[in-house]
Write a protein that binds this DNA or RNA. Structure first.
Ligand SMILES: [Mn+2]
Ligand SMILES: [Mn+2]
Ligand SMILES: [Zn+2]
Ligand SMILES: [Zn+2]
Lengths: 135, 135
DNA sequence: CCTGGTATTGAAAACCATTCCCAATATCGG
DNA sequence: CCGATATTGGGAATGGTTTTCAATACCAGG
């Protein structure tokens, strides 16, 4: 085997899914994307939407957040997606701002260290109501 | 209406669910609790397990974490449950340590403030492998 | 003790996001 | 053009959770 990352074909459906996400300011679920595509006449199967979203996530092209309601939501973050960062998410409209906090990163590692935990990882999400959604 | 929090009856099932959780070091799913009860001969319906776990969560007696796999897990945190805190969770056995970080709390509020978000809330979970589960 | 009213239970069905299956279709190298 | 390979998508299956609702348990009065 020659190895190397298997590049995937550029398909109409894949492009449609990526575009739909890129057009959005915030986190969107697979169902959201599916509905949006369908609305604008772009015909893509639901399974295919799921597939491409997952592929995008695997490739690190989008960020993933699991909502408390149990939906998996995706957001196209551009180049920023590669750097480790977190989000400030509007719980009304889903809009999100990229945020980072060195202090938090250090804190997570140190507190895990103190308790003898290894392979440390963490999830940090800040929720609020964006200015557009207030009032 | 006279208002006031509706106290609920103390039932065998409710006590069983609470005890099962209290006996555990870590976060457990409804299915886990159901299986555990069933194993020890305690007969409680699955819906009832869900109901009581939810009630405990509503009353602030247990903490809730949604796993990336989409399961809702609960942990009895004693008095600590009332104070705002976070967890260092072993991703292998589910064991959890209570942790807190003033710096993180302040950071969350300030970053939301800077972006004009209101009603700020946040989720912070640190994952790792506990010393017992290493090697 | 009965007895009617209220709260709880739990089995089964409904829900719903996500995954799986697989035959039909599209695409590629030669 | 052809056979090999990859992708698609409709529908079925999954699995956690919620809902439904008839049976049961519990309560306060009478
Ligand atoms: Mn991002
Ligand atoms: Mn806790
Ligand atoms: Zn908003
Ligand atoms: Zn462990």
């Amino acid at each position: 085997m020659t190895g190397g990352p298997t590049r995937r074909r550029e398909t109409r459906q894949g492009e449609a899914v990526r575009d739909a996400l890129a057009q959005s300011e915030g986190f969107r679920s697979a169902q959201d994307v599916y509905a949006a595509l369908r609305t604008e006449g772009e015909n893509v199967g639901l399974s295919t939407v799921y597939r491409h979203l997952q592929a995008l996530a695997d490739d690190g092209d989008v960020d993933v957040i699991h909502t408390p309601e149990g939906e998996t939501t995706y957001r196209y973050c551009g180049d920023a997606a590669r750097r480790h960062h977190h989000h400030l998410v509007c719980r009304v409209c889903g809009r999100a701002e990229e945020i980072e906090g060195r202090a938090v990163e250090r804190w997570a590692v140190s507190v895990a260290d103190q308790h003898g935990y290894s392979d440390v990882d963490h999830t940090v999400e800040v929720f609020g109501t964006c200015s557009a959604c207030q009032g």
